[in-house]
Design a binder for these strands. Sequence first.
DNA 1: CTTTAATCAGATAAAATAATCTGTTTATAA
DNA 2: TTATAAACAGATTATTTTATCTGATTAAAG
Lengths: 145, 145
Amino acid sequence: MTVIFSKKCEYGLQAVLYLAAKDAGEVVSSDDIAKKLNIPKEFVSKILQSLTDSGLVNSKKGKAGGFLLAKHPANIRLLDVVAAIDGLEIFNSCVLGFPNCSPDHPCPLHEKWGALRTSAYNMLTEQTLDQLKEKTLNKIAHLEV
Amino acid sequence: MTVIFSKKCEYGLQAVLYLAAKDAGEVVSSDDIAKKLNIPKEFVSKILQSLTDSGLVNSKKGKAGGFLLAKHPANIRLLDVVAAIDGLEIFNSCVLGFPNCSPDHPCPLHEKWGALRTSAYNMLTEQTLDQLKEKTLNKIAHLEV
DNA sequence: CTTTAATCAGATAAAATAATCTGTTTATAA
DNA sequence: TTATAAACAGATTATTTTATCTGATTAAAG
Ligand code: SF4
Ligand code: SF4
């Protein structure tokens, strides 16, 4: 199969977008998140635990516990989430799988792909969670369709 | 991990680019290909067998046998190879993994990602193997570094 | 206090992908 | 005509990714 982000990363992005769409400081359980997003509860729980370790998310234990963003949504870029889960090697490696990607010994697609890769990187850098709040709410509202 | 194309597809693309860089009609063994590209012989052999089934590659059995392109390199687009190996679902599915990608219920990145996705699709459609011959030869010449 | 519902840690299982192996057929070349 | 070297078919193994399970800890609510 062909993939941009791993499932882990997709779910992680969905989850933090969901958290960002909630009111600031609201605590959301992994059970809630899993149901809303239709993703495995234990899996998203694990992912959010790792994002907690990364400092993007905070958690609250015990009854009525759950997760919430560790920073203001304006201060979390999509790139931060991707970096925490999948890492950033994709922005430094070859689409064709050739080793030693470099301007000296570029692969045949270096020029064309490099431009796209940079665009993607910039997009993920520019987009912060708060900018996507509206659209996230709209998408989630229509998920059960 | 994050991936654009599966390993199968990466190897497949490398292999057909290599074949395209050879003289027209030249038969190349999977052993040769594997050694030049530093990829597992049996694996690339399997991949080329499947591309033979797809009609992009021809094979010649027996001693001094091997593989060669089934068409002129100008008539093989990168997209054809990707379609044959990984399929094209990636160009019709959500970066964020949300279901039901559509302009009606777009995911939060629909607009921005959609543009990049289209660019990538167009690039793979426009680039044919013959256009990349020079650059392929140059890259392969420096692989052992 | 006790019950309940949550995170958390770590093991385990299942599925998908990547890679290898074993043997057969085929055609070239010695 | 025999030895060799290749594709080919299919099974098997290994690795990675995805998902689930089990029990422990934590904290709120009754
Ligand atoms: S830039 Fe060129 S060489 Fe480097 S990876 Fe992308 S495609 Fe391959
Ligand atoms: S287009 Fe938008 S909605 Fe459709 S997939 Fe890409 S990102 Fe998700």
